[in-house]
Amino acid sequence: MIVEQEELEPVLPGVRLYTVTYDSQGLHVKAAMAVPDGAGPFPALLYCRGGMREIGKVRMERISQMAAFGYLVFAPHYRGNEGAEGRDEFGGAERHDVYAAFALLKVSPWVLADQISLYGFSRGGMMALLAAIECPGFHSAVIWAGVCDLFLTYQERVDMRRMLRRVVGHPVKNRQAYLERSPVYRAGEVSCPVLIIHGTEDENVSKTHAVKLAEALAAHNKPHELWLVEGAAHLFDSAQIREYTVKMFAWLRRTNSLSGAQADRVDRVDR
């Protein structure tokens, strides 16, 4: 249920921006939403942000760029962020903020209910994959530099261990909490095609996450593609972002079977 919706100043011509307050498990949580000009309905992209608190916040410029491809983009901030109620547990209960957003999109008059896809960046990869497992009905999922194994994150990111022990617990003493946040071990339950985009020089989330996810999906005969981008870091440079965003939407267009008018719109942006 949407509690409040406020229109914001646009940052890109042809794209409207909103802050949305909605209900998730009885909490009022917040999201950013970017909507292409026009009456719709549009295919939708449920954008799962990375980071935590001030790190990895939703950028209005980025979701506006994505909406320019003809998609409504809905980006939950997760509970405990942007003044919302509750507490961000790094893949814990706030995953329900993504599930509640999916329920909202399915009944929105602006959205084509059978063409809702997921996008997860960094920590958001974990959130998007969990949604693809626990909420059947997504058309596809894009995992960009995404976390898929929290045990591996704890091993690789010494700088994050203190936060992880505080929020999630120790991976030995609290093994179940790490398993619940590691969708690679539930790849057989993923309910939609997956596109994996990852830089080979990513020092924040190693390419091992992408390779492990691709191998796990292949082992369960789940449709997927793995695009390893040679030389790319965790944050792609502007040219890489442009190139792979265009390629990503071309992939979404192929998997989503958009109507003629929507496909035309994406083609214009591609060029």
Results as ranks from 00 to 15, higher is better:
R181A: 01
K57G: 14
G50S: 11
V147P: 01
R242Q: 14
H209W: 02
M126H: 05
V211N: 00
R268S: 00
A145W: 07
R87G: 03
Y244E: 00
E61W: 14
N174I: 08
K30Q: 08
L72F: 10
R79I: 05
M1C: 07
N81Q: 08
K207V: 11
R254V: 14
G26I: 11
G146Q: 01
A239S: 05
N256H: 13
P41N: 04
V205D: 02
P43M: 11
H170E: 10
V11A: 05
E85D: 12
A113N: 04
I2C: 10
W251S: 04
C135R: 12
A261V: 15
E82M: 08
T21N: 06
S117H: 09
F90T: 12
V194P: 04
N174A: 09
H96T: 03
P41W: 08
V35P: 11
G14Q: 10
A177Q: 09
F121E: 01
L130Y: 04
T19C: 06
V35M: 15
E134G: 04
G86Q: 05
G231A: 03
E94P: 07
V190R: 05
G125N: 04
D97L: 06
L130M: 12
L130N: 00
E61C: 14
F249V: 09
R271Y: 10
W110S: 13
E134F: 11
N174Q: 15
I55V: 14
V190K: 00
E82Y: 12
H224L: 11
R62T: 15
V246I: 13
A75N: 05
R165D: 13
G40A: 09
D267I: 06
L27W: 00
F138K: 10
L164D: 01
E4V: 06
D23Q: 15
K57N: 15
K207C: 13
R123M: 10
Y22M: 12
R181S: 01
K173S: 12
S24N: 02
G40P: 11
A68R: 15
R186V: 05
V15T: 12
D88I: 03
M160S: 04
L118D: 04
K222M: 10
N221T: 12
Y119V: 09
M163D: 02
L235T: 10
L46D: 01
D23P: 04
N174M: 09
H198L: 02
H170W: 05
A218K: 13
G146A: 06
E61V: 14
C135N: 02
R162N: 03
L129G: 02
R157C: 03
F69S: 08
W110A: 15
T21I: 07
L45H: 01
F90Q: 06
H209V: 01
E201H: 14
G38T: 12
E189Q: 15
E94F: 13
P36Q: 14
R162K: 06
C148I: 07
C48N: 14
P183E: 09
L213W: 08
V20P: 11
G146V: 01
A132I: 09
T200Y: 06
C135A: 12
Q65H: 09
